[in-house]
């Protein structure tokens, strides 16, 4: 059975770029779900089978840190890994994301090779 990924970013452009980078990196998913913020992401995780989440941090309505916090409180999704893809690189913010369960981070801008290097071992 194939794997499914959820892309969480308020920029539709960035969601398309991440999807393209996954294909260029040779990483295939059966389904690519998309959410524009943490609230939409939680709603998708409630009803779809998702194997890994790639999430931005700075987003409207519910940002990536709040999304991680809320997700960690829900038994049906707390074990789904989340990889942060963000312009945020500060140790405090990335450290907080990891303390809430993020398994790694990729800095924007990124290359398909970087996506493969970080995401590949997680699949």
């Amino acid at each position: 059975m194939g794997k499914n990924v959820l892309l969480v970013d308020d920029s539709s452009t960035m969601r398309k770029i991440i999807g393209r980078s996954l294909r260029q990196a040779g990483i295939e998913f059966d389904n690519i779900f998309e959410a524009g913020d943490g609230l939409e992401a939680l709603a998708i995780l409630e009803k779809e089978k998702v194997d890994i989440v790639l999430s931005d941090i700075n987003m409207p309505n519910m940002d990536g840190i709040s999304f991680l916090r809320e997700k960690s409180n829900r038994d049906n999704m707390k074990d789904i890994p989340v990889l942060m893809i963000s312009t945020e690189t500060g140790d405090d913010i990335i450290g907080e994301a990891k303390s809430l369960g993020a398994v790694g981070s990729i800095k924007k801008p990124f290359t398909p090779d970087k996506v493969n290097e970080v995401l590949g071992p997680l699949l």
């Binding site: 920029s11 452009t13 960035m14 700075n58 963000s86 312009t87 945020e88 690189t89 500060g90 140790d91 405090d92 913010i93 990335i94 800095k107 924007k108 801008p109």
Partner: peptide, 18 residues
């Protein structure tokens, strides 16, 4: 999104811990 990525890079120059 271009502004967002540029802003993130500028922020790293102006702050250490984010």
């Amino acid at each position: 999104e271009l502004a967002n990525m540029l802003g993130g890079n500028v922020k790293t120059v102006l702050t250490e811990n984010g």
